[in-house]
């Protein structure tokens, strides 16, 4: 993302809306400027802020005159008065920033918006996590910290050593050059994202081991992990995870409940 210095009036409205804090007023030019290395191309500023189309010279003059009298206009906080926020054309590898950070862009590898994963949300249709299995969802950089792929790789390498099988229909997996070793493409390792999700499934008996391994690995990261674990319920709606995780000292009370109302379309039946 860029801010057009010819249009920007230095009002500062866009500074706090950036989830990565990548926008600042340049003290020399008194215009807002995006730190390209920290910007994750999430489009929050571009899409979340409303836009007026005022004449920049007029707005600067009004602000300057008001400033002489120590008066400051109190504008709506989510408006760019001169439509100065401008998306730039993204090329590889920078384009992966937007694919992982802008929730309105579907991932090419999965066709899913957001972070590109269906997890347990469609388990009633896909049958991805079966009885006796557990699905793991490891999200990096959330909330509001961000992550670079090299830190994702630090964890995927550890998971590969523990011989987990990464979910093939997952955007991070699609960027692995060697899934058996958890290694990602070299050319994306320094790219920064708002968040990325690694998914894998395992057997229920390995849940304590893998949760502890992830918690230990997280201590050595410069970003945060958000962990989620899923399981299939029995015919009576009972599930094995709450007791299992409770036994590890995790008080689990919030999550997603798949109601089992989905079914494959007739042509796809038999796959789940």
């Amino acid at each position: 993302m860029q801010i057009d210095p010819k249009k920007c009036v230095g009002c500062g409205n866009c500074l706090p809306v950036c989830p990565m804090g990548a926008i600042a007023i340049d003290p020399r030019t008194r215009r807002a400027r995006v730190n390209a290395d920290e910007c994750v191309e999430c489009f929050a500023c571009y899409r979340g802020m409303s836009k007026e189309h005022l004449n920049p010279t007029f707005v600067r003059t009004v602000r300057r005159v008001l400033g002489w009298f120590r008066v400051r206009f109190d504008p709506e906080p989510d408006i760019c008065p001169t439509d100065a926020i401008v998306p730039q054309e993204l090329t590889w590898p920078r384009i992966v920033r937007r694919a992982f950070s802008d929730p309105l862009v579907p991932h090419e590898s999965t066709g899913v918006h957001g972070r590109g994963t269906e997890e347990v949300k469609t388990n009633d249709v896909t049958g991805r996590v079966q009885a006796g299995e557990a699905g793991f969802v490891v999200e990096f950089g959330r909330p509001g910290v961000g992550v670079r792929f090299r830190e994702v790789q630090q964890v995927t390498r550890m998971l590969a050593r523990l011989e987990v099988g990464f979910e093939p229909r997952n955007p991070v997996t699609s960027l692995m050059r060697d899934p058996a070793k958890g290694e990602l493409r070299e050319d994306i390792l320094t790219e920064k994202l708002l968040s990325a999700i690694v998914e894998f499934k395992t057997t229920l008996d390995r849940v304590p081991e893998l949760v502890r391994a992830l918690e230990a690995e997280a201590k050595g990261l410069d970003t945060v992990l958000a962990l989620g674990v899923s399981a299939r319920c029995g015919p009576d709606g009972s599930e094995p995870l709450a007791d299992l995780l409770g036994g590890m000292g995790h008080l689990v009370y919030r999550g997603k409940t798949n109601l089992g109302l989905g079914r494959p379309a007739p042509a796809a039946r038999g796959a789940a």
Partner: peptide, 13 residues
Amino acid sequence: TRHSVEYSLGFHG
């Protein structure tokens, strides 16, 4: 009757 459940284990690191 619910089919599957996914728990949040919160933030780490």
